[in-house]
Design a binder for these strands. Structure first.
Length: 588
RNA sequence: CGGGGCGUAGCGCAGCCUGGUAGCGCACCUGCCUUGGGCGCAGGUGGUCGGAGGUUCAAAUCCUCUCGCCCCGACCA
């Protein structure tokens, strides 16, 4: 961080004048560490569900994250914009997403009755500009970005800053003439993101992801491994394969079945409602020998999804396989009407011919080649045994199951691990989804009209800060990485009324500022204990304590937040040490 | 959208079942005291009990409706 360095250079910040409302008691409804600590340490306050006010300390952290993002985006040729958050309906209708976004978009009418939405992402708005202004391949490629507030009416805001309804996002968009250009833009972003998150001090992984309602061909998520996260990642420690479980595939061991009868046989199963019930006596059918039959509505039309009894269906994969816009579990009444039986006794046998399921049965690949299995008979409290997929019914084969820990890696001989993770960034190859629907085209060198090939790339700014807190905290408070801490250093005057202590503290603060070390000077007339507690809670990396004890030897005390040792240094040594650490963090 | 929980002083909570003067701790203010890990003593300030309606002589407490927040699930660019 050189010249454009953010908030404060050469300024002197006195704790007694700064608004840092720390609280001793833990707010009762804060569950995750970042939520609890950001509230307690005076970084933010809640205004409503998923709506937070950012206080001065948090604003400083976010500004630092944004500066790092800006530097790295500019370094790959990104140009900063600032687009409206207020979007007329018509723009979103062009891409079809006014409909697709559903309740997740905040919507309202203006005084004239016109429909407006609050921006939840900006593909449409950037494409609108590109469509009007980009005419020739000579103008490509372009990389445009902004750091802006997004609004999403989340069904369930939670976990403090991790899932909110208003937040700051760096979003960028690349415009290229061809696929090779997109690949370059995508890779440039990937490298920029690695630098950004690295400079922010985060440890993170890149994982293959599902594109969701963004559309497009490929996407990579940047994830921080933490139990506070809401995503599940399957990863192979051996080859590095990592994917969101929405997308992850796996290798399952082949199961050899015993030969069964030539055709399915009906048998009564009184009281059996679940896979587990069937595994118990007197039936004793192992879960992996059962076919789990799930009834879904895909864009309103019935489909059957089959997975092994010991596996879970992945709805995102089912949606992909069916090509539907929306899939949902069928309601009990629909199940009764379509299947003629209630959940618990459902099966695919006999359903592949005739309405409503003809040609609409999908089965997971792990059922391929299996025989002599057990499944529901579509007659309450009855099942069929000796069922062989492909003989007794004809499904369409697809990867439908959710990958599980302990299954084989799809890329190598390794075994998959599963862990919770928090998404802090996501990069997408969009292709022509928006340029085609909105008519963003350029002429190529042969004079041919071509839709612009687009990419879209996001970083959740608050999530970067919250992820840092999740990753780096202890029972006393936050332990910020130096690069995004609200201040590099804090100086505590332990006996604020003692003139000698005050003078030494002021001298140290002055020299630190001069050396470019952002310093919070705790000049309050408080007991030392309060200052130590607050310093730990707020989490500033370098803590200098100036007190009578040390001054007796002409020294001040340095403690690095999160480390045990304290060191006694002269003021000159202290300043040199702080400067060295800060310069090193900036150089990264 | 389904299930559960909670709204009483700035924060954390008790009181509610069994209706009858609204309480405790922290914070805050004043004074004294204390000063290397959220001191001590004394005295204070502060509450339409989320809102509306109802029952009752009387409602924080019982009933109805409503708003908000949190958790689990569903959903989630």
């Amino acid at each position: 961080m050189g010249a454009p360095c953010v908030p404060c250079q050469g300024e002197e910040m006195r704790y007694s004048r700064m608004f840092i409302p720390t609280i001793k008691e833990t707010p009762s409804d804060a569950e995750v560490a970042s939520h609890r600590l950001l509230l307690r340490a005076g970084y933010m306050r809640q205004l409503g569900a998923g709506i937070y006010s950012y206080l001065p300390l948090l604003k400083r952290v976010l500004s630092k994250v944004e500066s790092i993002v800006r530097e790295e985006m500019n370094a790959i040729g990104g140009q900063e914009f600032f687009l409206p958050a207020l979007h007329p309906k018509e723009v979103w209708e062009e891409s079809g997403r006014w409909e697709v976004m559903g309740q997740n978009m905040f919507r309202f009418k203006d005084r004239k009755g016109a429909d407006l939405g609050l921006g939840m992402t900006h593909e449409e708005i950037f494409t609108y500009i590109a469509r009007d202004e980009l005419r020739s391949y000579r103008q490509l490629p372009q990389t445009w970005y902004q750091i802006q507030t997004k609004f999403r009416d989340e069904p369930r805001p939670k976990s403090g800053l991790l899932r909110v309804r208003q937040f700051t996002m760096k979003d960028s968009y690349s415009f290229d003439l061809d696929q090779a250009g997109l690949d370059k833009s995508f890779d440039a972003h990937r490298e920029a993101y690695v630098k950004i998150f690295g400079r922010c001090g985060l440890s993170f992984v890149q994982v293959e992801a599902h594109s969701g309602s963004m559309g497009g061909s490929a996407s990579t998520e940047f994830m921080v491994r933490t139990n506070a996260g809401e995503d599940d990642v399957a990863a192979c420690p051996k080859c590095g394969y990592a994917a969101n479980t929405e997308k992850a595939t796996s290798r399952v061991a082949k199961i050899e079945d015993e030969k069964g009868p030539d055709k399915p046989e009906l048998f009564p199963t009184p009281g059996v409602r679940t896979i587990e019930d069937l595994t118990k006596p007197p039936f004793n059918v192992a879960a992996h020998r059962q076919i789990k039959t799930l009834v879904y509505a895909a864009d309103g039309k019935p489909v059957l999804a089959l997975v092994r009894g010991d596996q879970e269906l992945n709805e995102a994969k089912l949606q992909g396989a069916t090509g539907a816009n929306e899939v949902r579990p069928a309601h009990p009444e629909e199940i009764q009407e379509w299947m003629g039986a209630a959940a618990g006794s459902l099966g695919a046998v006999g359903k592949d011919t005739g309405a409503p399921f003809e040609g609409r049965i999908w089965a997971d690949l792990s059922l391929q080649g299996r025989e002599n299995m057990v499944t529901g008979a579509n007659k309450d409290e009855h099942h069929l045994k000796g069922v062989t997929p492909g003989r007794d019914f004809q499904p369409k084969w697809a990867d439908l199951r959710t990958a599980m820990a302990g299954e084989g890696c799809p890329r190598c001989e390794g075994t998959l691990d599963l862990f919770k993770a928090l998404e802090i960034g996501h990069i997408f190859k969009l292709g022509t989804k928006y340029s085609e629907s909105m008519g963003a085209k350029v002429l190529d060198e042969k004079g041919q009209e071509k839709p612009i090939i687009m990419g879209s790339y996001g970083i959740g700014v608050e999530r970067v800060a919250a992820a840092a807190v999740e990753l780096y905290h202890d029972e006393d408070g936050i332990r910020w990485p130096l690069s995004i801490a609200p201040f590099h250093a804090t100086v505590l005057s332990l006996q604020a009324r003692d003139p000698e202590v005050g003078a030494a503290a002021e001298k140290l603060v002055g020299q630190l500022e001069e050396a470019g070390v952002e310093t919070l000077y705790d000049d309050r007339d408080e007991r030392p204990g309060i200052k130590f507690k607050d310093a730990d809670l707020v989490g500033i990396p370098l803590r200098f304590a100036v007190g009578k004890k040390g001054l007796a030897e002409g020294k001040v005390e340095l403690k690095i937040r999160g480390e045990k040792e304290m060191r006694l240094l002269t003021i000159e040594e202290a300043v040199a040490e702080a400067k060295a650490r800060v310069d090193k963090a900036r150089a990264r």
